[in-house]
Each structure stands twice: as C-alpha cells, then as structure tokens.
C-alpha cells in the first residue's frame, strides 16, 4: 500500500448516470460513492455493470440525453460538475487521462501512429517536431514495442489489438497526468505483455504519486495488481475490499465470478455457471469512501 490516507485526489459522492429511453429512465450507475488517493483502485464487474460509465462520468464524457447526477465529484477539492466545458478541456488529458477499452475505435484510422502520438504530445507541450519524434519513439519503447520506427510509419489497421492498446497507453502517459483512468487497458493483451504494461502504470503511481482507477473484468488481475477493489453489479457497488483479500470475498456474486474461472491447478470437467439473485441489484450501494 502507498500513502493512501493523506490526501484524496478524487472524491465521488452519490453518482448516478441515467439514460432516458422509451421504456422509462434506465439507471446505468446508481448511487456510487468512492474516494481515490495516490493508490491503485480497481473496479470490477461484468459488462453492463456500470464500471465504464463511472469512469466516463468522472471526465464528464457522457453526452446528452445521458444525465450525470452526483452530490459532488471533487478533484482535489474542486467540483468537476460545476466546471464549464472549456475548463473541463484543461482537465481532460492534462490532469485526468483515460485509456479506453478498444484501441480500434480510439485511434484515428487515417493518420499514421507516429503523427498521432506527435500531435498528442505537442498539444500539451511546446516541443519541436524532432523532439516530439524522439520522445514518441522513447514512449513506444517504454511500452515494449519492437521496431518502433516501423510502427511510427504504420496505420492503426496494421497493428494487432495488443499493440494498439500499448500505443494508446503511450499516448496517454506523455502529458504526465495526476489521475489515469484505465478502462480494460490490458484485456486485449497477453499475460507477458500485460505484466510489462502494468509495471509501467505501477511505476507511475509510485514515482509520480499518480492515482489510478483500473477498470477490469479480470478478477485475478485486479487482485494481483490493485490496492483496493470495488465490485460492481447492475450499477451498484456490492462489495469493497482490499485487493489481497479478494479471494476471501463474501458476496455471492463475487464468489460466483471467482468460481467460474478455469484453473490450471484445479482441472474440472465442467465450469460453474453463475446463478443470479435479483436481490443483488436491489440492495443499497456500498460506499467506497475512506
């Protein structure tokens, strides 16, 4: 654990994300509260549990007709919900950065990778093109891409999913943000590369005192990598625990998820299938505030 208690970087209280639809209002996130210190906070859950929506709501990336409501979303004491759209633009990228789920949709398909990284870098600093090029090569190497010169010349469709995601991470880290929201950053990567990418993020948390929100569906990874974990189901936090105690989790949903994983050391003929209880989604959200 790092110094989690001294200052909380981010304080979210009673966050709701609503989407009006023909069948009434759909609540994607329902009354979620948590704080983030200079730590690695994991959010786990299945698709549709509202974990990505939570990340997007913090950056105010949810477009109308979607509605975001909260008592407050404080970034070092300043409420992000009160900021104008212009002020928000200074927050996004510079202070809070986000790595999205799918590199296929977050990279520009008609620009070379090199041009995109250089553009992102020069937007946040006054470096010359040559400096930006060298820095971009450095960042690509830092996320362990072989042959970075060829990658700089290539277009996104020539990259595999794993390489695309590493390029995204390289781009997001260049402006040196205080908080990084990583939405399934390593789901497209293999175990060996995953480790390297996690090490890079780990180093940033340690050395620069960055706060990390790590959104993932991979329980083992989160248990391994994060300090604290929020488990979400149907828009609510059903359980909050220390990551190293995740395997002793009490909630039946968390237990069900853990049991449905195939394991090398414990072979079984059939995998356990999760049986859902409607009561899980009705229960009040657990607070993740310290």
């Amino acid at each position: 654990m790092y110094g989690t208690c001294d200052v909380s970087l981010l304080d979210v209280k009673n966050l709701w994300v609503k989407f009006p639809s023909r069948h009434g209002v759909f609540d994607a996130v329902r009354g979620v509260s948590f704080t983030l210190g200079r730590e690695r906070l994991g959010i786990v859950g299945e698709s549709g549990s509202g974990k990505s929506m939570t990340g997007r709501a913090i950056l105010r990336l949810i477009r109308p007709p979607g509605i975001v409501e909260a008592d407050h979303i404080n970034l070092e004491g300043v409420d992000l919900l009160q900021k104008s759209e212009k002020d928000m633009r200074a927050v996004r990228g510079e202070r809070i950065s986000m790595v999205m789920q799918d590199p296929k949709f977050s990279l520009n398909p008609v620009m070379t990778i090199g041009d995109q990284i250089i553009e992102a870098y020069r937007l946040h600093s006054s470096a010359s093109k040559a400096e930006a090029y060298t820095k971009s090569l450095e960042m690509l190497e830092a996320v362990s891409i072989r042959d970075p010169e060829r990658v700089m010349r290539a277009y996104p469709h020539e990259m595999s999913g794993g390489m695309g995601q590493r390029i995204m991470i390289a781009m997001m880290l260049i402006p040196n943000p205080e908080i990084l929201i990583a939405d399934e950053p390593t789901s497209a990567l293999d175990v060996s590369v995953q480790r390297q990418v996690l090490d890079i993020m780990d180093r940033l948390v340690k050395e620069r005192g960055m706060g990390l929100i790590f959104i993932s569906h991979d329980l083992n990874l989160v248990a391994d990598f994060c300090d604290r974990v929020l488990i979400m189901y149907a828009g609510r936090i059903v359980e909050v625990c220390d990551a190293d105690k995740l395997h002793d989790a009490q909630h039946p949903y968390t237990r069900g998820l853990l049991n449905s994983l195939p394991r090398l050391d414990a072979p079984r003929d059939r995998l356990e299938v999760l049986k859902r209880d409607p009561a899980w989604s009705d229960a009040e959200s657990v607070s993740g505030r310290i």
Partner: peptide, 14 residues
C-alpha cells in the same frame, strides 16, 4: 466475453 459467460460458452463447446 465476461468470465461468467465464458464459463457457459466453454461448457457448450465441450
């Protein structure tokens, strides 16, 4: 796919 759904699909394939 999610892990809970992965379990269903792997069972189906088996």
């Amino acid at each position: 796919l999610d892990v809970s759904v992965q379990a269903e699909i792997l069972n189906l394939l088996a």
